[in-house]
Amino acid sequence: MALYSEKVMDHFRNPRNVGVIENADGVGEVGNAKCGDIMKIYLKIENDTIVDVKFETFGCGSAIASSSMATELIKGKPVSEALALTNKAVVEALDGLPAHKLHCSVLAEEAIKAALKDYYDKNGIEYDHTLFPDCASCGHCCET
């Protein structure tokens, strides 16, 4: 059996929404080079809707496929829905990931949250801070 599902390999080989948005409304970058996966998400937001999203990822097959799938899942959606996106939903949409690869996919959810937080901060929009646990405490991206 192959390491990854066909869905994962499809998103890994042909990632959707790769790239950069100049003057993005929100940018989020999580992970670090030490642990081997870094994800950066760029959002274009109009009327409380994600009208465009792009990503750049340094990481394994699981990290790249999760970024691609996560951007697909939030594109065209209201900000509130993007905020509610979970790692679980990304993994399910990919037809699963091997257990030891789950941690690489968590970054997608976190990168989107970080980009939304950036959007709120830039625009002075009030938000519930508990929705954005501070990075240092989560340990997913082995923050040093």
Binding site: F12, R13, D37, F58, G59, C60, G61, A63, I64
Partner: peptide, 14 residues
């Protein structure tokens, strides 16, 4: 520099 090994291996395997 700037890339990760597993994705390199998967694409080479392709």
């Amino acid at each position: 520099e700037g890339i990760e090994g597993e994705s390199l291996l998967l694409l080479l395997d392709d």
